[in-house]
Design a protein around this nucleic acid. Sequence first.
DNA 1: TTAGGGTTAG
Length: 540
Amino acid sequence: MLAKHKILKLFRCHHSQKNLKIKPLRHLICNPFCTATESPELTSRIKSSDTQKPGEDFVIPSLASWVESYKLHDQTRLASNILSEKRDTDIDRFSKILKNRYPSPDGVVQALNGSSLSASTGLIEQILRRFSNDLVPAFGVFTWAKTQTGYRDTPEIYNSMVDILGKCKKFDLMWDLVREMNDLNDGYVTLATMGKIIRRLVRGGKYDEAVEAFRGLDKFGVTKDAMAMNLLMDALAKENSVEHAYEVFCEFKDCTPLNIRTFNILIDGWCKARKLENAERTMDEMKKHGFLPNVISYTCFIEHYCHQKDFRKVDEILKEMQENGCKPNAVTYTIALHALGKAKQINEALEVYAKMKSDGCLPDATFYSSLIFILRKAGRIKDANEIFEDMKTQGVMPDVSTYTNMISSACELSQEEDALKLLRKMEEDSCKPNLKTYAPLLKMCCKKRRMKVLNFLLIHMFRNDVSIDTGTYTLLVRGLCMSKKLELACSFFEEMVSKGMVPMNATYKMLVEELNKNCMGEAKEHIEKLMSRVKPQEPV
DNA sequence: TTAGGGTTAG
């Protein structure tokens, strides 16, 4: 928690800097990378890309050696087998094989059979993470590993594979695998497995099938308890289908034990769907069942009113909580702080912070992230950075989302150096970046035509086992289109399709239009051919 | 394992 004088300083700053505009940042002019060591595949893509204009694709001197070391590191690993750490060598050898785009998992199996590689649990886990959006290599490795003597998949590995199949909407294969797990008769199928199935089915719009999966839990030796039912209801409510969640509730409430979470899931669902009367009715029903509303129940309502910017109502709920002896927690305060910040009521937001402190509630990483976010949005960069530094001295370590937020803000402000330094800092702090961390960086590279930094980021992602998903490919294709890096845009489009992903119609149209404008008839035909093989999807 | 930012969009 910040000392009181620091909070006061934030208030003072706000008044004195109310009309302060962010100064346009000096464009960073830096030394170019040396060109010798890039990842082979991307280099060929980037080299075949449009000719670069002067001033593009520079990197900050203070970061050049880091970026360069990554690339050297990567190439050494891929090129040489003489390395000290066996596991690291193996993951690279696997990756090298898997990066050949085999048309089917069988192709992968054959390729691996022809190698001298052997399976181990840690290795297979890592590969499934690294290729979690890439069904053919993932399923190929998984299938191959099962045939290896002395190796047996753990339930966790099976669960990861189930999840990947569900994510790629291969529901039949997913069910086959669950039955296979069940046939092992060794307690492989658990609620964790069925939870993945239910969530993937719901996300694929298969609500009825998800409910059926719940009904059939006993077949897999999984108990239909409150936890299982909550899981189903939560999946439905999160997918904007609180009505389905309510149907489940009505159908099973008499034969399944309920707990306070069951009701809170519904309350949250109704609040998010802006069906407030239903949320209130659920609150009454909850009391009838002998459950008193807790901080989560109230916070759902607070979030609703924050969303409506009805801060008077928020105060009312807070008062009601106090009357009922229910204390707001860090989540409650974060919601209020963030909403006030978004509504440009910075002083009121900071009052929330002061109130939190006086209430003796400790902020966590997410709270600080929100505080940093709203300060940066208000142009208070220096204060935001100070909070970021200060949170560590307060004993709260920045987490992935804190870093992601900082990186995202830096990218928005075109502070390339800061953004990359933050990524390096994450590495130093052993904080693993995820797709959301990379997204703003990738976007910035596309916009500023930093192709070599883009190359570096893609290697960085791969080494951190972050698998590129449809959204990220969309971002890359769109970003590169806008920067007229059309050949590269095409190559990402192709890679996306080759992984079985379906590009959005808008993305496809944008690419084709740009190719048309630039008289790239051959490339256009190629893209059209690719698209005709996949089912076009209307943007949601 | 019920509540907390942002996601493409110009």
